[in-house]
Design a binder for these strands. Structure first.
Lengths: 347, 347
DNA sequence: GCCACTTCCGGTAACGTTCCCAATAGATGC
DNA sequence: GCATCTATTGGGAACGTTACCGGAAGTGGC
């Protein structure tokens, strides 16, 4: 009894040929309802389960999709994975998940595994800046994240950084912080340039000279944000300090630096993050931040894949809007300042 | 050129039979080195990549493994997934990842998908308390987490709750908190009973009457910890309060409640968590907690699977030790108290 | 010079499924 | 009653791989 039942066993049990059994179980219209019932009962009785390996071989459709992200342990990418998982599951397929650790070789090896598994499509956040790798990938794929911009002619999904930065700057200005300091990522990263460019554009729109903005480089880590904030405070030891961080982890690190320096957020220092990681909700004060639609990113990327495979028209690059989450890390200077200037205010 | 090259193409290009080509590429000793080289070159030249679907069908080994966890978005389970991913990858296989959302039907459907994909083995955190489901699973599997105890005769991995609780209680006693209040999970959960039982055992060992301990029920959420803490503070409005929470999320919720009540942690309230989630490092104060070895859990579960498949002897149930992480949420009453009592102290 | 043995290779079958084609039977039209 | 049509079924081939079996050389011993 070690063997799993095959469709031949089912056919035998139902007293029909394997062709008929296959037809019955795949809802083909060319089979008598009575026969279909008989086959279905036989399938259940024998504990038959379709062998997807064989199906994939015969039909060319493996029912498998691939996801290659930097690290499943990173909450942002976990959300992306979940979104992709959901859509892939809804379409009756399964998802192979890989973590590349931002490593070229690992990425390449995972892509090879994906091809060998004959996945029908793959969602990738590319570490590689070598477009050729993907040109010869040989499997439908959609790219996710900012580095996808390097591959202009493939469908890709990302968050709308320009809109996100506008959202952040609007909020900062409305709260009376017209010229925030910036804690950015390392110069080597494409995302840094994009973020900075967006800030500049929006500053110009508001007649703010971008050169006025203080800039510190971090490395997208907690520690990086922490030391960047220390440098910022050293440069401006008094007065209210406002910081717009390029990600939440650095913002959280900055918050710690503020507290260690004996200053208080948001009384002395205002902090705005960018990402929407869960930890931002548990800090004190809660981190005001701009949330990237991580799960939706994963859903869209998967959907794009199915659309592409089905031959439905593709959008090319899609940018998803971000959302501002107000928690408590931003002081409202717009109320305080008029009071001081005018010396009076209602209630 | 749409077709992917097969081993027959390679054989043709190399001027040998497909049997020889297959042998050459699978490192069989029964092939001349010169021929092997010829085949290898032909394989590279044609861009051949082994079709795992066909291999799986012929050999019965799909190179696929499955993982079913409650939610990949949960940092604990993401770590588990990562551990499993790493071990599976090291063995040249790939991992199918599913999220069950603690839902029976979803779990069942994912297990079916796993069987149909002909995975060689699966790692599951079972939602179901129905052992029969797994008895007839028909695929080697290893269980992970506390509910695995319901399946005594299958290999399973979990964290050592008794050891963890001992660690926590030792630390609490050493810091001068002999009788902490407890914020637990809901009564319906097996994990709650286990945690509570361990606490009782360790209390008895120290001649502490377990009945003295205040107990509040949470539901493992941030909000649940928040309201449980409010109830606790209402019951004991003054004096130092110490709380041992059954998970970090509730501990973080409790911390917020403390702050909202105008009390301060750790000055007025000491909090000990349990899990080791990353967010605990970003709170203020940092959460002192007991870390479960999540990634190692995943690694071990995967390793157990490979051992089982290879026919290596199995341990049955394995409990992995936890680790105390000291951050700042616990006051040191052992110093303070003697000072008050004795009225003097050095420096 | 014959036999046994090793080394290497080719042919064929099989894994489980689906697709295509042909065949059967009954129904319909004339 | 015969041709035609439809509904339903069965038989084979094919997907790409590996395992098994047998054969062809070459080697060495006597």
């Amino acid at each position: 009894m070690g063997r799993r039942p095959t469709i031949i066993d089912v056919a035998k049990l139902a007293g029909v040929s394997k062709s008929t059994a296959a037809r019955a179980l795949s809802d083909s219209p060319d089979v008598n309802e009575v026969t279909r019932d008989k086959v279905r009962k036989a399938a259940i009785a024998s504990g038959y389960e379709r062998n997807h390996l064989a199906v994939g071989m015969r039909s060319g459709r493996s029912g498998l999709f691939g996801l290659v992200i930097p690290d499943i342990t990173n909450p942002f990418w976990a959300e992306v994975a979940r979104g992709a998982q959901d859509i892939v599951g809804e379409n009756g397929a399964s998802l192979l998940v890989f973590s590349s650790d931002w490593d070229h070789d690992r990425e390449a090896s995972h892509l090879r595994a994906l091809r060998q598994a004959r996945v029908e499509g793959a969602i990738v956040n590319p570490v590689s800046d070598n477009a050729e790798d993907f040109g010869r990938f040989g499997v439908p794929f959609s790219l996710i994240g900012s580095s996808a911009e390097r591959f202009p002619d493939t469908p890709s999904i990302g968050s709308d950084i320009r809109q996100a930065v506008r959202l952040g700057l609007d909020h900062l200005v409305a709260r009376g912080h017209p010229a925030p300091a910036l804690i950015l990522g390392p110069k080597s990263r494409l995302a840094r340039a994009r973020f900075l460019r967006s800030v500049h554009e929006h500053c110009l729109e508001r007649d703010i000279d971008p050169a006025v903005l203080q800039v510190e480089d971090g490395d997208y880590t907690f520690e990086g944000g922490h030391s960047a904030m220390q440098r910022l405070m050293a440069r401006q030891p008094s007065g209210h300090l406002t910081v717009f961080c390029a990600n939440d982890l650095m913002a959280l690190g900055a918050m710690l630096a503020v507290r260690e320096a004996g200053r208080e957020c948001p009384r002395d220092v205002s902090i705005l993050g960018f990402d929407g990681v869960p930890a931002g909700a548990f800090s004190w004060p809660g981190l005001t931040t701009i949330e990237k639609p991580a799960r939706e990113l994963g859903r869209r990327a998967a959907q794009a894949l199915f659309d592409e495979i089905a031959g439905r028209p593709q959008d090319g690059r899609t940018y998803l809007p971000c959302r501002l989450i107000e928690r408590g890390s931003l002081a409202d200077l717009s109320v305080q300042t008029p009071l001081r200037v005018a010396g009076a205010g209602r209630s």
